[in-house]
Amino acid sequence: MASTHHSSIVMLVLLILFAVIHSGGAALRSRAEALIGARAWRLIFAAVSIPSAVVVIGWFLAHRYDGVRLWNVQGVPGVIPLIWIGTAISFLFLYPATYNLLEIPAVLKPQVRLYATGIIRISRHPQAIGQVLWCLTHALWIGSSFMLVTCVGLIGHHLFAVWHGDRRLKARFGEAFDELKASTSIVPFAAVLDGRQQLQWQEFVRPAQLGIAIAVGVFWWAHRFIPTAAELMRNSALQNLLG
């Protein structure tokens, strides 16, 4: 039984470490940028957070069916389209705020901004919503106890990030953030439905959205290689363990 849940424990530890690196780096951003500059801090942050994310993704791919299989709906008609539609929507929430892609490698000077357009009209924290949707679709498809532990860790981190992000933006922008908060919602479409917000569909027609659509297509195509990649990761980890 211990070996059955070993990979789940490791996954939870990896997610906690990633959360500390990612959210901790966000908390240190203002002071670090004042000391070494925005570009230098972004490069340091990327050099630490990206490898930690790669480790988490690699462990997930290699162990996603570990633990106890709690349900299996993979043969149920209509489940595959449901999974892909839900996953595609999750990506539309996860990544549209990253419009200034050149800020990631610090080619452009990274800046903290208040966004009040596009996906922010639907939810003030689209990445958290996207992560919850991704977890729901993949938990439904995989159905393992390992996947449930992964989802608990990911959703827990993003719920913390909602609170932490609002706190940091309030400290940085003051009343401007209060105005944004008053006109938006965390729950998708809540501010639209109660009249605080109006959707402007033209704001969603942006090159970044086309990039997201292409990325979804690439991920769909690449899923056929996941079993092979996972097996390679398992074999590599075993070889490293055996020396």
Rank of each mutant, 00 (worst) to 15 (best):
G217K: 11
R167A: 12
I16A: 03
Y115W: 15
Q197K: 07
L238P: 03
H157Y: 06
I212S: 10
R168Q: 12
L14R: 00
W59S: 01
V192K: 05
V10N: 09
G156F: 00
F93S: 06
R167K: 05
L154A: 03
S236D: 03
S23V: 00
M1W: 15
L154P: 00
A128P: 00
L94G: 03
A182F: 09
Q74N: 07
K181E: 12
A26N: 03
L70Y: 07
G130I: 01
L43M: 15
F93H: 05
A213Y: 13
P126S: 05
I212G: 06
Q198F: 05
M11R: 02
A62R: 04
E203A: 07
A116M: 12
I155L: 00
A34E: 10
I50H: 03
W201D: 05
W163V: 09
L108E: 15
P207G: 12
R29P: 02
A171K: 15
I214L: 14
L12Y: 07
F160Y: 08
A2P: 11
S23Y: 02
N235P: 09
A190H: 01
S90D: 08
I119F: 14
E203C: 10
A191L: 02
K109E: 15
F204V: 10
A62I: 09
Y65C: 09
A229M: 14
W220G: 06
G174D: 14
T4H: 15
D194W: 05
